[in-house]
Amino acid sequence: MSMEDLYQEIILDHYRKPHNRAPSLEDEDVHVHHSNPLCGDEMDLRLRVVDDRVDAVVFDGEGCSISQASASAMSDVVTGRDLKDALDLAEDFRKMMHGDEPARADDLGDGIAFQGVAKFPVRVKCALLGWMAVRDAIESYEQGASAHTVTHEE
């Protein structure tokens, strides 16, 4: 296994200088906490919605470079999109992590750099963590909830 297959330069850039990483968000609508008990990754994600669009999303927590970088790339991709569109991209990313060709490669932005992670099954959960958190945050918002905690099992 090659380190370069897994850790592309774009991924390392997001890891070293994460976008939208913050411990709080003004006027947040939803706060979700997601964890991967097997690797010990923990993530807090906060979402603010305006006119059914992702107005802002920030994340914070502990995790490996893949989970942190993927959340950073995700935050760039979903900000400004309407909720349905963001959910659709999260699903496209999830399928890509399970080996499918992404249907919306251009829209996934830097998220496309994580396609190679699909070849490393134990790291797929790391790359998915931020995306699953934002999906949960949007779905929680749509159901009128303001907080939700999810533990991802194997």
């Binding site: 008990p37 690797c39 470079s65 790291r123």
Partner: peptide
Amino acid sequence: VHPHDVGAMLGSKGVCVRVGHHCTKPLM
């Protein structure tokens, strides 16, 4: 450096170590 990343780098050099919570969450 997160333990997962340490383990991945070591693994790429043929060095097998364990990373994670080692089935000891209360201790962690």
